[in-house]
Design a protein around this nucleic acid. Structure first.
Lengths: 205, 205
DNA sequence: GTCTATATAACGATAGAC
DNA sequence: GTCTATCGTTATATAGAC
């Protein structure tokens, strides 16, 4: 009882975030969010007016969390191989703490491309120029094959994200329980570093 | 008018398949499916009883289309590099004809893991043993690095699927219109072959 | 088999007491 | 701010005429 304003508001928000990530906008129920927050359903409307407005706030925050994690690492000064390792480590622990976020983002993004585009423009989110420049320099210096930076970036992100997005597929087809799946992920980190560096013929000088 | 039984039934089914793939189960409306099929809404219930039953049939068919495309190519007798090229070609043209299917499958799979597992067991779907055996043989013969076959398989599939699943992300972040995106995909095919073969240090003998 | 009309239930949202 | 009760809409599903 007597839990008030900011606490209640946050509690609703976090509950909504979990439910929307789990069920998507259309599949989520206001009653379900209220139950998850252990709060009366009418409080949701009191603080957020409507399901749509509540969803938009959740959407904004999850988007704002997802992309900086990715792009911040990419814009560091480290050489490519170290950067790659850093990215994989950072991304894996982030996705481990937010196992549904990649799914949520990919799904809602395709559901409302316009909303996503607006978000990206307003926030000025974009792959760091310095990353592209670094790759071009590495190619010029003969440290890697002449690859298209965008193809490489999509490949790296895809390789990292895919097991999280397709977790059920991996678990069921390979008959892994949760523990075995986590071991699979752990072994994937060194595998990916080797695989990607080999893939572009990276050689440190 | 006067279009009867099998035709009507199929028309409903195909319309439902498109709408469910576009909106997901929760987001799809029976009225929307009826409109898409250009058929009276009560016909949906006449032929399929309920939204749930209609969805399950669509789910079954899309699953039954998706996995064989993947696993059939993998179980061929071709050497690894040719198989890889064949897989990329086949998968790309399949995904091109069914641009929403990967999304649909990944989403509904995670929404009902139990249903997916049941489907996989009943249909006996699994990665072909011959593919694993081939990789082990190639490693033994020194034709590729000692990689874990499952990590490699997940990587290949992820590299192919990701741009389709994250299409909006790629288009918006790279500021590509539809035509430019298709060119990106086209250039991706040779890129992927090189990238993957290099990634495991494949050398033909 | 196909249509219109309607039952039934679920859900988002609001009113009003405290 | 929090609760209960309820309104208004929309969605699925069915009844019944043709």
């Amino acid at each position: 009882m007597a839990e008030n304003n900011q606490d209640t508001e946050d509690q609703i928000f976090e509950a909504a975030s979990r439910i929307f990530q789990r069920k998507g906008y259309a599949g989520a129920r206001m009653q379900e969010i209220a139950d998850e927050a252990d709060i009366n359903k009418s409080m949701l409307h009191y603080y957020y007016r409507s399901k749509d407005k509540l969803f938009r706030k959740v959407y904004q925050r999850e988007m704002s969390r997802f992309f900086p994690v990715l792009f911040k690492v990419l814009s560091s000064e480290d050489p490519f191989d170290e950067k790659l390792e850093g990215l994989i480590d950072t991304y894996y622990s982030f996705l481990n703490d937010n196992p549904r976020i990649a799914h949520f983002i990919l799904y809602e993004m395709n559901q409302h491309p316009g909303r996503f585009q607006q978000f990206i423009k307003e926030k000025g989110v974009h792959p760091p120029d310095s990353f592209v420049a670094q790759i071009q320099e590495d190619i010029k210096q003969g440290r890697m094959d002449a690859v298209e930076p965008r193809q490489l970036l999509v490949s790296i992100v895809g390789l990292i994200l895919f097991p999280f997005v397709a977790r059920t597929m991996v678990e069921v087809l390979f008959e892994l329980d949760e523990k075995q799946f986590l071991r699979f992920l752990k072994k994937r980190k060194p595998f990916l570093v080797d695989f990607i560096l080999n893939g572009i013929n990276y050689r440190k000088q």
